[in-house]
Nucleic acid binder design. Structure first.
Length: 556
RNA sequence: GCGGAUAUGGUGAAGUGGUAUCAUAGGAGGUUUCCAACCUUUUGCCGGGGGUUCGACUCCCCCUAUCCGCACCA
């Protein structure tokens, strides 16, 4: 069984290469690890999957599409935590030049070296001075952070600023929050989607398209008010049993509706995106029996996340994570706020304005200014903290620790009633993130059917019509007597329709041409024969059933 | 990054210290050709770089890529 599966995987990748779907990139120069081409057929496939994905989310009505640069300044990814999180700290042995990870060689000397900062590690390395695992010497170079992101310089020469190729598309959507907020008339919830390239300089790309250095990702950021319980209508998924691997209950079969009701899915909006993700994947042709949701363990989730579910799809490489749906809290917007000092918030109006009685003190600028000079600002702050019953003169302690005497001439009473109509808050984010390459791989894997009609070796790629890269093949039964010309006319007229792709093929026997079309998953083949010349009808042949029907050319 | 295996037409394979064989696919022509039919003809390959040798696809070294473990990781 394993051998048969192995053979299948090789035949599948061979076919993908032979037919121009997925190929190793730059092969004539020896190739490059972790980089793939989508070929003349695959390019269109990728595009259709991207478009289906965009359409699926934009149809929600409150989701907009963004396109942000892949080149990203250092500061953005520093704020997001990627500069720190995506790093390994490396040190070189000065004797044998062997590179080692600092946290690995310090493992015997610290409970959790992974948690240390660079300078802590450097300190510990100097104190312990461990032996090189390779040559036994103890002479280490300074620690350098080796990041899994691709470095680049934005600009030339001295004006160049450090940057990276983005490791995910999400950050651009967070940094665009203000624009999104304005566009959506300052009302939550709303979302933004983006499909595009991401880059990670993986130590070891493996397993074909499963781990790449440049990959296609599609991410959605859905901004919500944490204090509003969104109403999601789960009724359409109520009877749909899902394969769930939950953190507390293990493997269970349950509808998403029930899992949300029981609190297994901790947030209804996460549940809603899980259900809609299921719809998307099955709509484009992922086999629902080879799909499951796996909840992250608490220690596996990023510290800021409150719930995270992966969609795993079963294929030739086993269960592979293809989508992650995470409740990220306010982490991202807050991180960019902290780093920039800009406000990335939404406003929440109170049902009833809050009436606040203010009764206290402030300074009188005319007297306090000359009296306290440079300290006047700090004195004002301190005085505004004083109770309304305070009596002057009094000693106040300033921020810098100094103590000054404030007397009644420096202050004035403040008594007023304020009505506060609302407040600003940092929205929370639910993020479904899709690995498009991995999804495409599984679409192909699930669609690849080697079962010939009579036990013969015959390949059909049973791709869903919505993503099939070629819509029609047009064949003249013979390329003579005018059949070729008629077939070319039909081909041209199909191609001129928006979004329709047709292939004209007149070489080889008709059976061979059907076989070629089946192998790249063309749903419908159109054949022009002698009868076509007389009555303007053609044969339509359906890929999956093989059934033929005659229809008039005008009905195509 | 460590260990192991591999690298020959587009694809899948065979083989040799003296430039390569087979199947399949592709092009052209023929055949009333509807599920990889047939006939003729044609195109196309030793991953890259060094070394040994009169001569290297073959032997040696390095590199690159692929696959499998380990490690790492959306």
């Amino acid at each position: 069984m394993a051998d048969a599966e192995e053979g299948r995987l090789e035949r599948l990748t061979g076919m993908l290469k032979r037919r121009g779907i997925i190929l190793p990139a730059f092969e004539i120069h020896g190739g490059a690890k972790g980089l793939y081409d989508f070929g003349p057929v695959g390019g269109r496939l990728r595009n259709k999957v991207n478009q289906a994905w965009l359409n699926h989310w934009i149809s929600m009505g409150n989701i907009v599409e963004l396109s942000c640069p892949t080149i990203t300044p250092y500061a953005v990814l520093e704020a997001s935590g990627h500069v720190g999180e995506f790093s390994d700290f490396m040190t070189n042995c000065n004797s044998c030049e062997e590179a080692s990870r600092a946290d690995t060689i310090l493992e015997p000397h610290h409970a959790n070296p992974d948690s240390l900062t660079k300078s802590d590690l450097q300190q510990l390395l100097g104190d312990v001075n461990p032996q090189c695992p390779s040559c036994g010497d103890s002479d280490w170079s300074p620690i350098v952070a080796q990041n899994l992101m691709f470095n680049t310089t934005i600009g030339a020469g001295k004006s160049g600023r450090p940057g990276f190729l983005r490791p995910e598309t999400a950050q651009g959507m967070f940094t665009s929050f203000s624009s999104l907020y304005r566009h959506n008339r300052e009302r939550l919830p709303f979302g933004a989607v983006q499909v595009g390239k991401g880059y990670r300089n993986e130590i070891s790309p493996r397993q074909g398209m499963i781990r790449l250095r440049e990959f296609n990702m599609a991410e959605l950021e859905y901004f919500i008010d944490p204090e509003v319980d969104l109403e999601h209508d789960f009724s359409q998924w109520a009877s749909l049993q899902m394969n769930l691997l939950s953190e507390s209950d293990g493997e269970i079969i349950m509808s998403i509706t029930d899992a949300v009701a029981k609190g297994i899915i901790r947030h209804p909006t996460v549940g809603m995106f899980m259900a809609k993700t299921f719809d998307f994947l099955t709509n484009i042709g992922i086999d629902s029996s080879k799909l499951r949701f796996r909840q992250h363990q608490s220690d596996e989730m990023a510290h800021y996340a409150s719930d995270c579910w992966d969609v795993e799809i079963l294929g030739s490489y086993g269960w592979v994570e293809c989508v992650g749906i995470a409740h990220r809290g306010c982490y991202d917007l807050e991180a960019h706020e902290k780093a920039t000092g800009k406000t990335l918030r939404a406003r929440r109006e109170f049902a009833q304005p809050k009436i606040v009685e203010i009764d206290g003190w402030t300074t009188d600028g005319a007297t306090a200014g000359p009296a306290f000079r440079a300290l006047a600002g700090a004195v004002k702050k301190a005085v505004e903290q004083l109770s309304s019953t305070c009596e002057f003169p009094t000693q106040v302690t300033l921020e810098n620790g100094e103590s000054v005497t404030v007397d009644s001439a420096h202050v004035k009473r403040v008594q007023r009633t304020e009505s506060i109509s609302g407040e600003w808050y940092i929205p929370h984010v639910v993020e479904p993130a899709f690995g498009i390459d991995r999804i495409i791989w599984h679409l192909l894997d699930h669609a690849y059917d080697e079962s010939g009609k009579d036990g013969e070796e015959y390949v059909t790629l049973r791709l869903n019509e919505s993503i099939a890269p070629v819509d029609y093949c047009v064949f003249p039964l013979f390329e003579k007597d005018g059949m070729g010309e008629l077939a070319r006319d039909i081909h041209r007229s199909l191609c001129s329709k928006f979004g329709t792709v047709s292939i004209y093929d007149a070489s080889g026997s008709i059976g061979r041409r059907y076989a070629r079309a089946d192998e790249i998953g063309v749903p419908i083949c159109i054949t022009v024969d002698h009868q076509s010349l007389q009555d303007n009808t053609v044969t339509l042949r359906d890929r999956d059933s093989g059934k033929q029907s005659r229809i008039s050319i005008s009905e195509l």
